[in-house]
Amino acid sequence: MAWIVKNSATMQIERREDPYLDDELKKMLETEVIPRFPSRQAATLPVLHAVQHKHSWIPYQALEEAAEFLETSASQLLDTASFYDDFWLNPKGRYLIMMCQSVSCELLGQMDLLESIKAKLQIEPGQTTEDGKFTLMTVGCLGSCDTAPCALVNETLHENLTTENFGQILDGLE
């Protein structure tokens, strides 16, 4: 988690005209989120969640904009954002598959399930399919050990998975 190596200072940041943190988003955050905390920096996680919810990932330009909004430095924000597994500083697929690989799930067949999904999508955990549809990740316990093995696909939890039903679930996605 804390091991993401930062790009060097020579990195080129891709920029676009339109801000990621647009006025509408800023207004919402200013009225609904900022007042919750005694410091602006404390709104970091909600702000990053909001940016990611809108854009699917958090580009560097968005980090800079968020830093300005939170009245902190971009490096401070990068420090925070890069610590958390759920913040994407690189683009991901339209569907993010987070397969639980903790004990209860492994005891109940997660490894075979993972092999079948890898074969089906032709990717390894951490990779995205060429068409940009799926990103596959293995993660720690999802808090649903009674219905192991399980996986989150975007915000939806799928439980009691088998090679067959999980394959069908993925096939059914647009």
Partner: peptide, 24 residues
């Protein structure tokens, strides 16, 4: 307040750091 996928943020002081907008 939503976390972002870090087990250490369940540890009480890691949680507080995270709540303050920092790494946990």
């Amino acid at each position: 307040h939503r976390g972002a996928g870090a087990y250490i943020c369940g540890e009480e002081t890691g949680l507080l750091e995270s709540l303050e907008g920092k790494r946990g």
